[in-house]
Design a binder for these strands. Sequence first.
DNA 1: GGCACGAAGATTGTCAACAACATGCAGTCT
DNA 2: AGACTGCATGTTGTTGACAATCTTCGTGCC
Lengths: 224, 224
Amino acid sequence: MSSESILEAISQRRSQSLTALVRDELERLILSGELRGGERLNEAALASRLGVSRGPVREAVRLLERDGLATSVINQGAFVRQVSIEEASELYDLRAVVVGYACGRLAERITHEEEHELEVLVDAMDEAAENEAPEDYYSLNLTFHDRIMEVSACPRSTLLYRSIVKEAHLFRRRALTSADAMRESNAEHRRIVASLKRRDAEAAREAAERHHISGKRRWLRTMD
Amino acid sequence: MSSESILEAISQRRSQSLTALVRDELERLILSGELRGGERLNEAALASRLGVSRGPVREAVRLLERDGLATSVINQGAFVRQVSIEEASELYDLRAVVVGYACGRLAERITHEEEHELEVLVDAMDEAAENEAPEDYYSLNLTFHDRIMEVSACPRSTLLYRSIVKEAHLFRRRALTSADAMRESNAEHRRIVASLKRRDAEAAREAAERHHISGKRRWLRTMD
DNA sequence: GGCACGAAGATTGTCAACAACATGCAGTCT
DNA sequence: AGACTGCATGTTGTTGACAATCTTCGTGCC
């Protein structure tokens, strides 16, 4: 082992507890689908698989509960959370109102640099749409919205937003993104940015909220 | 010990883990102010005080983190969350948009029984306002809003609402409720119920959101 | 007097063992 | 045959001990 990786391991060890490391790994397993919805989280099995004892695993599972990624029943253990279509639908709505709120706030304080940053992302998404590159579009879209939340200076809303995104991800047969859907979605992004540039809080809120409601509609269309 | 209390103890023991019991107790201590904001949660001290070992205490603290009542730093322990005025302000806003959303949904599905139930509560609050009984008003007000969330059939929003209420409670020098403020607040309650009775989703949402924004304004007035 | 250093105490992080509980199965009784 | 009882096994709940880390306080030096 090289000395750098030793140092890295030590510094990781200092800044992160085993609980946190286990939590991250479990989150990865769940969000990637390796652990499926409803599947039982066997403490002993996970502990030996990750090379730790059951204590950190138990605490990590409690943290996952916090994020709505797992649920546990007394004396029966923890299970990967299953998100029904009704719940996913409500999560879309909640995300819409939370993002709407944050965008309204952001319109009152956005800087020129931040505007530019968002415009660059929207342009990139246009390109991804033209190239019919849904993977790229998907990832840029996540960045765009996360960045909006971050610069909105609404820390609690940002945390909530991220939590909702993760939770919704549990349902997501990822919306298959046709070129049309991408173009439609990005046109809405442009409307959001335009409202932000005009410093029009009410319009920004409406545009953001409608965008997410439209997203929900596009998602619902892929269901039947 | 009577046989009933034995059965009770057994059923409690079965339905609740020590972790859950500790969690409830800690939540009580925090929300009642016995444990103050910023105060350190000493695992060993709490464990011996509650007659359990450190394990359940640690897990309970993780659960409190979920609800935003505690924060923990690696190798330094957990602390009772301190909510700044800025955070409390954002929590008011978030609550407003979440409740607004739920009220909009509720307008589309409320039953006559539920309408009646809400009207009874509003009448009771009028009485409390006239009697200048802020304690009664406060408690009725909590019931009113919680009931609205419950019958709105938006389970995730209801959970979120309750979490926000608890978190905001951490700040609350409880808004001193003058008779005027109570009357003003209850007039807004009547507008919410009226919109619900008309099955007017948009109006219900607006009325609920505005009510919470007004509440925030009344709260801010008591700050200076 | 103020600051760096180090040791002692206190506190958290982790672990492995034990106890309590749930599940599945075989055997028995009606 | 069906239902119930009791046991065997695996899993979760809880505990106390040990290791690692942080904090505090006293000492010595500048």
